[in-house]
Design a protein around this nucleic acid. Sequence first.
DNA 1: CATGTTATATAACGACTGGTATTTAACGCA
DNA 2: TGCGTTAAATACCAGTCGTTATATAACATG
Lengths: 197, 197
Amino acid sequence: MPRPRTFDEKEVITRAMLAFWKKGYGATSIRELEDATGISRISIYNAFRDKEGLFLAALRNYHQIAHAFLNEDFIAGGLDSIVALFESMAKRRPKDAPEHFGCLMVNSILDVHGISAEAHQIVMHCRKDLLSAFTSALRQARRDGEIDATDREIKDRAEFLVAVMWGCRTTSRLAGDALAGRGIAKTAAAMACGWRV
Amino acid sequence: MPRPRTFDEKEVITRAMLAFWKKGYGATSIRELEDATGISRISIYNAFRDKEGLFLAALRNYHQIAHAFLNEDFIAGGLDSIVALFESMAKRRPKDAPEHFGCLMVNSILDVHGISAEAHQIVMHCRKDLLSAFTSALRQARRDGEIDATDREIKDRAEFLVAVMWGCRTTSRLAGDALAGRGIAKTAAAMACGWRV
DNA sequence: CATGTTATATAACGACTGGTATTTAACGCA
DNA sequence: TGCGTTAAATACCAGTCGTTATATAACATG
């Protein structure tokens, strides 16, 4: 039987995710990934096929975390859940929290075409999840009589909210501080309340 | 007296800007820039010092264009000018228009730290211009009695509008189609109208 | 025409890139 | 104790990166 692996694949993925998050795919070299993950190049190529494979694993990991986070915060639905989501985005975080580097999905959009169709698909899928989360929250709000909107308007508003979120994270990245988007998130929350009939 | 240049520096910058716009700084090699600009490597290094110098020239050029555009659309001020700006963003464009690649400033945010402090500064400056354009438009709206808001609220709303714009352009980049943000811009315009007292 | 400056082309530089080959050591199981 | 598989370390691969040297041609002015 084989010698067992001395590293935890899940943890390697997490660490690689952080590295890509900070510097982007192209600017993160294999040598840097060795340092970041703590395992050797050969182990990386063994476990993930190549650099792109490790990146895809990191993207999927990020997507999974985001998915879980959405499902926690959107159980209730309605306008309050949207407000809560934006408020949670404006929460203070530890100085070394990766949120200060923006959103991995957004950060990857520039290069994702040049990497692979699969990478592009993951980002699209993540966006779709966020979109449908907002959509169902808005639909719930309509069922509860909180808002009055057509399906078309709900779809537009959901896309709008995704854009606000992404713009907020982009602002955070530029400032190097997740808190830079605080006023934005606050305004977004207030605006969602403004939709109340 | 020297042999005159056979290329137009302004046009070289424009072409380089388009190349960086499409693929980003890191992914655009000097060899590609030779093809894009139509001049040789040596001429590039002669005229712009190095790759970063050409990129800075491209960024400044983009900033200048954006600045001029803002000053054209924001002469009137007030809510209508904000609506007009978002509507102009949702306008249909020729298939090869660079707007389908998002916003050069936003696209550059990921790497801008790793390039130079000057690049970072240009992006920040461009954002500041956009911010103050929104701010003065909102102040005008308040003077005209269109809205009722404190200075703090106006500042937050201006930052919010920048985030919406950036998120809209990011969405365009991901979809490879500037029109993908149409619903977003439409909703943003409607929302700005919602601020009317 | 001679001069000085630039353009162009070719070639090359060292450094770094993603990715391998090779070897040796470590381990679970028969 | 071997066997089979993996980990790890070292060295290395060809290719590309940004950048520069060299050498020649083109041009406006004196």
